[in-house]
Each structure stands twice: as structure tokens, then as C-alpha cells.
Design a protein around this nucleic acid. Structure first.
Lengths: 345, 345
DNA sequence: TTTATTTGCTTAAACGTTTACCTAAATTTA
DNA sequence: TAAATTTAGGTAAACGTTTAAGCAAATAAA
């Protein structure tokens, strides 16, 4: 609607008429082609500036069969990790003068598959993604790859797909977190994870088990608490129930949105952190330091992961990194110790 | 690069050839035109499905002169308010089968103006935006409006531009927050704001002043603390300096990212919240309830604001809401009282 | 029955770029 | 000086849709 004054749009035709040259000359001059003389180039550029010419991206994309646009496909956005990762991605997208379409799967395979179907249109030149936690069938992703759209996974990667991957050392950081709890005196550590079990959570679980095994603590399957991947009150109930039954003295929350649930569950059970129970969480929440008590976290290099993923993608788009599937980059997370795992005196 | 197997792309031409009809028939059948018989329509739809036909958005956008894409222009993304607002926007964008391009101004006027220049290309059919805090000259926005691109402001609106606006009741909620602090016994309340002074912060300041005036407390200009709009350590120093000098017994932080700085400043000065100083912050941080102490907040209806803004925009795009500039919607924020403003016994 | 209308489809132009190919003049090379 | 090459542009097709205009056959109205 309101088409209004769209008629006076200045395009290459306008410029060509004004300068009395062909449209081809305009196009070539603006792309700095060797076909065009310096003087003509200057006149074209100057006139374009004067008339506020802005190229039509859709005509350009149609003709060039490339869009200068990428897709960011992530489970959710109200999550510090993904927000920070987007910042990293955006820093490169901006630099490359590309554009970024945002797609939220809400951690649903169905939505993810549907989005990928849309993306077979050639809408984007590449994709940066973190897969939904319940994505088992990866046909939609492979189809797009076959169609020639490069995909870079970050954080929640698909291990079985040959593509560039940016991960953090999930196994190792869970191992470190668990060892830390053990060293702080915990004997009975629960691992809070979410349904759907993406591969990174499996890695975290393995790291947790390794640390237990090393200190000769038998792993009980009942110590794995499975919550919903949604931010919901129900998780608090699940946690309270589990904590009441298995009485852990340490908890590792493997995903960000379970930090609040864990704290609230402990509070409602009048358990004191860290005296009664010690807590560490995989989170990039900026408020971790001012929580009650300050939360020991596994801090992931979210910004850097986003940046690196984008760098790889653009490297590939510009001809470097021919063998994308060989790129498997692991950026280290770090344990930031705070009061929630302090030994009480 | 890697053009690869893009050759076997199926387009309308392919379908036309397979079905032995014209391209126009394909196009019209897929758009459910009355021109085409039911039987033919079914055959077209069936074949399109079978051959996995996906329309080329760029050809379509070029021809239709509309893109089914909107732009979300916001200062930053690692901010709970904007993250939640994007969720709200996305819920509508998804429903309307549109696409959303994300643009982060990093709260810089220069970047914002540059982005708007790009958007004069017709890349998007509409814009949802929160202006950068240092945007004084709004020529770039007006230019785009003149070019026929509808803009809906949310949260950080441009008061002087005739456009749809979704706000929260900044004046009133600051008034309520201030009154709350006064009722809790504060006598000397500082207002923490940021440089650049967007209009919503002015409104918050006015609400603050009104509450003071009502209780006959003289407003001191020195009680306004101006921080940077960046997330930086420096803000903590500024706060500490100010708190040391003016010794406030209450603080209102007007923007989300100052909550952490405020808490840390108090901690470093070994001031007890709420005993020595009470704190309330405009924030949607989900962790507010588990901070030390739990933070009293002005909770903004971020998701709803995003949703409403998108609804208005799509209403306009589909012909409703002809007079967008008349739309000025105010959604209420609410004061969520927690321990950071509790009267100590 | 004749005329008007509807139905179902086709033709072809248009959207605004980009680019392969052509051409004429200017310059260089032999 | 003649031939080859370079320079500086122009012509026109192509990208994949959408849609105005047209048209023949079928149906309805007179």
C-alpha cells in the first residue's frame, strides 16, 4: 500500500538518460570496470551521488544469482549466549556489507525444517546455524548443502554432517566443572540437562562422567535431571522433586535458562547455596556476578564463536576455505569461580 | 563460489514445460487466480510439490516491487528488552510469512543513518525501530518515510516524526518507581541515565522529578548521574565517584545495562542494598529475582511491544491503519517490588 | 438465434540489474 | 604504413517472476 511517491525512483536508466550514456556504462562504471574511462567513471559516480541513487538489491540478486545475504538460524534469542554470538556474527556481516536474516526455530525441528525449505529458494548465500535440540533427521540440512548453500554450524552442531563447525570444548569444560565441584567437597552431583539431548549436551554429560570416574565415584543414572527446553515454571517443580529425592550436594546446569530455575528451586526448598548445595552453570548471563550468591559459571566464548563462524562462511564465499568440512574449530570456555561453589566454613 | 549443482534448479519454466502449459498459467495457479480452472490448478500444485519447486524471492520482489521483508533496527541485541521485543516481532513476522533483517546500530547515529541509506533501495517493505540514543538529526528517517516505507517506532521513539509509535509509560513508571523509593524512606534519590538522552529517558527523568516535587523534595541537578551507553567498567567508576560525593540512599537506573554496574559499585563501596541504599532498575533481566539482593524492577512489556509494533506495521501493509501517524500506543510497565527496596528492620 | 458474458488459458512486456559479445576509434607493433 | 591490439564504450539477452491485454471456446441472456 501507500505506493505514493515511489514513482520518482532513480535507477540506472535515469542515470543513463541524464548522462547520455548506456545503462551498461552506468553499471560498469559503478562496479569500477576496466571497460570504462576514468573521466566517465567519475561523472557516473558523481551523478549517482547527486541523485541519491541506491542500487536495487533484488534486481542485482536476481541477475547475479547471489543475494549478499546470510541466514542466522538459532533456537532462541532471549539467551545471552545467542545474543552475544549474533553480535559477533554481525560484526563480520557488517564489515562484508552483507545482510542477515534472522530465523528462530524455538528449538523445534518442524520449524527448522520448514525454514530450510524456504531457504532452498536461493534467498541466502550461506547459513550460520545452531540446530534445534530435537533435530534428529538432518535431511533438510543436507538438501540445502547439496543445493550448494554453505552452512557453518556453531555451538549446537550436527556431528554427522560434513560442514564447518565452531564449537567450544564441551566435554572438557564439563569435566573441569565437575572436578571443581568434587574438589569443593561435593559427593553427589546432579547434572541438569534438557530433553532432546543435542550432541553438545551429550559431550557435557560425558565430561561429567569422566570426572566422576576419575575420582572413583559411581555414576547414578538418577542423577541426571531432564528438564524442558522451554523457559517454564514447570522446570522448577521438576528440579525440586529431584533434589528432594536424590539430595545432591552439587548441581551442574548445562544450559543457560536453567540457572534461574535451579536457584529458585533451591530457595523454595530453603537450601543454602553453597552451604547445602553448590551450583555451577553453563551460562553467559552478564548478571552472574551479582546473583545471590554470585554464580560459578562456564563462560563460553559466544562473541568469538559467532565471529569465527561468520569469518569461515565469508572466507568460503570468497573462495578461501575450499574444504569447509575440514574446518572444525574449538574455542575454549572457561570456568569462572564465584561464591556458588565456595567451600563454606 | 561452489555454484555446483545450482543448474538443476526447478523454476516456473520447468513446471510449464512439464505440464505443457504457459508460465503464466503456473504463476496464476500457484497464486490461486480465478483465471485458472480447478483441475489445472491441482495439477500445477501437485507437480510443484513433486519437483520441490520453491519460488525465487528475488524475481518476485523485483517484479512486485515489494519484498515481504521488514527491517528491525535496534541499538543492540544483548539486552533482555530488545531480545524479548524481537521475540514478539518474530511471532508476527512468522505468521505473516515475512522475513526479518536485523540491523544493530550499536547506538550510533552514524551507523543508523548509513543503514537507512541502504534501506532506500526498496530492500524492505517496512521498518520497526528503536532509535539510537544520540540521534538528533532525523533526516534519514524522514527521507525513507517520504520514499513510502512505513516505519513503526517502539520503545525509543522519535517524538517529532509523524509515525506509529509503541511506547511504555515512561513518565508514569519513573514516577511510580520514585514514589516507591520515597515511601520506603529514601530522602536523597539519584537517577542514573545515559549520555545522548533519548526522549524516553527524558520522560523518565520528568516522572522522577514529579514524584520528588510532590513530596516537596528539592531536585538537585547533581543527583543525575550520566553514564556511557556502552557496557563498560568505566561506568562503575563514574557511579562510585558520584555515590561517594552525593551519598544517595536510593538509586533509579533508567537502563538495563546499568543494573550490574550499580550493584557492583555498591559492593565495591561496601554499601548494603537495601540497608544503606535502595535500588530500582528499568530492566527485563530474567535474573532479577535471583540477584543479591533480588532487584526491584520496572518490567517493560517488551514482547507485547514488539508484537504490537509488528501488528501495526502489517496492518498498514495490508491496507488497514491508513493513518499510521495517529497510532500512538502506550503499554504499561509494572513495578515489581523485590528486596533491593525493602525497608530494613 | 444472435449477442453478451464468462471461463480458461496464452502472449508478451515489465521489474532493474549484469554481462557476453560486438564495434569503432585510438594506439601500438612490426 | 599496415596489421594487431587496446581502449571505451554500446547492444541485447538474461535472471524468474507477475500481470495487463488478448483471444477462442463455452455458456448465458435477449
Amino acid at each position: 500500500m501507500t505506493e505514493g511517491t515511489k514513482s520518482n525512483k532513480v535507477n540506472m536508466k535515469t542515470l543513463a538518460k541524464v548522462l547520455n550514456v548506456s545503462i551498461a556504462t552506468i553499471s560498469k562504471a559503478l562496479r569500477d570496470s576496466h571497460d570504462i574511462g576514468d573521466e566517465t567513471k567519475q561523472r557516473v559516480i558523481e551523478t549517482a551521488r547527486l541523485l541519491h541513487y541506491v542500487p536495487n538489491p533484488y534486481a542485482s540478486s536476481l541477475r547475479k544469482r547471489s543475494s549478499n545475504t546470510i541466514a542466522i538460524v538459532i533456537p532462541e534469542i532471549a539467551d545471552s549466549f545467542f545474543s552475544q554470538a549474533i553480535n559477533g556474527i554481525e560484526s563480520i556481516v557488517d564489515q562484508e556489507k552483507f545482510h542477515a536474516l534472522i530465523y528462530l526455530t524455538h528449538d523445534s525441528y518442524e520449524r527448522e525444517a520448514q525454514m530450510f525449505n524456504d531457504l532452498t529458494s536461493g534467498r541466502v548465500d550461506g547459513i550460520l546455524m545452531s540446530v534445534a535440540s530435537n533435530t534428529k533427521d538432518t535431511q533438510h540440512i543436507q538438501n540445502l548443502q547439496k543445493a550448494g548453500v554453505p552452512i557453518v554450524f556453531f555451538d549446537r552442531v550436527c556431528e554427522d554432517i560434513p560442514a564447518a563447525k565452531i564449537k567450544t570444548d564441551d566435554f572438557n569444560s564439563a569435566y573441569i566443572a565437575t572436578s571443581h565441584l568434587l574438589n569443593q567437597g561435593c559427593k553427589n552431583i546432579a547434572l541438569v540437562t534438557i530433553e532432546g539431548y543435542p550432541s553438545i549436551l551429550l559431550a557435557r554429560e560425558e565430561g561429567y562422567k569422566k570426572a566422576l570416574a576419575e575420582q572413583n565415584i559411581k555414576h547414578e543414572e538418577s542423577n541426571i535431571i531432564t528438564c524442558s527446553n522451554k523457559y517454564t515454571q514447570e522446570n522448577i517443580a521438576v528440579l525440586k522433586d529431584h533434589i528432594t529425592k536424590t539430595k545432591p550436594d552439587g548441581i551442574i546446569a548445562t544450559v543457560e535458562h536453567l540457572a534461574t530455575a535451579t536457584y529458585l528451586a533451591c530457595e523454595e526448598l530453603t537450601l543454602n547455596i553453597p552451604q547445602d548445595i553448590k551450583v555451577v552453570c553453563f551460562t553467559n548471563q552478564i548478571t552472574a556476578a551479582i546473583l545471590n550468591p554470585p554464580l560459578t559459571t562456564i563462560l563460553q566464548p559466544a562473541y568469538e564463536m559467532g565471529r569465527k563462524a561468520a569469518e569461515l562462511l565469508f572466507g568460503h564465499l570468497s573462495g578461501r576455505f575450499i574444504q569447509m568440512e575440514k574446518e572444525n574449530i574449538i574455542l575454549p570456555s572457561k570456568l569462572v569461580v564465584r561464591d556458588s561453589t565456595r567451600i563454606s566454613d
